[in-house]
């Protein structure tokens, strides 16, 4: 089956209405951050990044996760990321090396999820975004520590997060509702906040 090269890659039901085009545009750079870099306030950026990747993966496309040695892969599978189409490069090498790895992967896959191992120079960030655009690949940067200095085309930020299900000595982490803020260039210039239930409870609206 030949997959047409669509301009907008699919997003999951949970996120589609929060994204300006209903999905992420090929060749763009999306930065996913927590509410403030380096802090755990409103955690959930990893889950949000996985959910963005899941939409693409469910569309039948190939994805790669670079620099995420501690990624919860079972969690990725639960979010419907197809493990058989997810390339994992947990240790992409030191300075200079990982830029080459990313550039190479843009040739091979449709979406790359990247967690910078250290601060990224503006010039490098710009070059990588340009390369992704040239190859029509999606770059999603999971930036938990404020290492990616360029604004990117789209920014997705978790602004509030609340778990339910856990009590004092009983229960289980079950559901979670977060608020995400999407902002960026062009259609998304005005920041837009939406409430999303990141762990479906199977209940109707």
């Amino acid at each position: 089956m030949l997959l047409a090269r669509e301009r907008v890659l699919p997003a999951t039901d949970l996120l589609a209405s929060s994204l300006p085009m209903g999905g992420l545009q090929r060749g763009t750079t999306t930065i996913v951050t927590p509410s403030s870099p380096g802090s755990a306030e409103a955690p959930g950026s990893t889950t949000l990044a996985l959910e963005l990747l899941a939409g693409v993966s469910m569309g039948g496309y190939w994805c790669a996760a670079v620099g995420l040695a501690n990624l919860g892969i079972l969690a990725a599978a639960e979010r419907r990321v197809a493990l058989e189409r997810l390339l994992l490069v947990p240790f992409p090498g030191g300075a200079g090396r990982w830029q080459q790895v990313l550039a190479t992967l843009f040739d091979g896959v449709d979406a790359v999820l990247f967690a910078p191992p250290g601060p990224v120079r503006s010039s490098d960030a710009r070059k990588l975004s340009a390369r992704a655009k040239d190859r029509g690949s999606l770059l999603i940067v999971l930036d938990r520590h404020g290492r990616w200095s360029e604004p990117g085309d789209l920014r997705c930020r978790v602004t509030s997060s609340a778990w339910s299900g856990l009590g004092e000595g009983h229960g289980l982490l079950a559901g979670r509702s977060v608020e995400i803020e999407v902002s960026g260039r062009g259609a998304a210039a005005r920041p837009r906040r939406t409430a999303v239930s990141l762990t479906q409870m199977g209940l109707t609206a």
């Binding site: 599978a77 994992l88 490069v89 240790f91 790895v101 190479t104 091979g108 896959v109």
Partner: peptide
């Protein structure tokens, strides 16, 4: 396409550096 990209990454980082789960 994927095979070629993987082969190049293996050339840069080593055989065990890239895989699936």
């Amino acid at each position: 396409r994927v095979e070629r990209a993987v082969a190049r990454v293996q050339g840069l980082l080593g055989h065990e550096s890239i895989g699936t789960a």
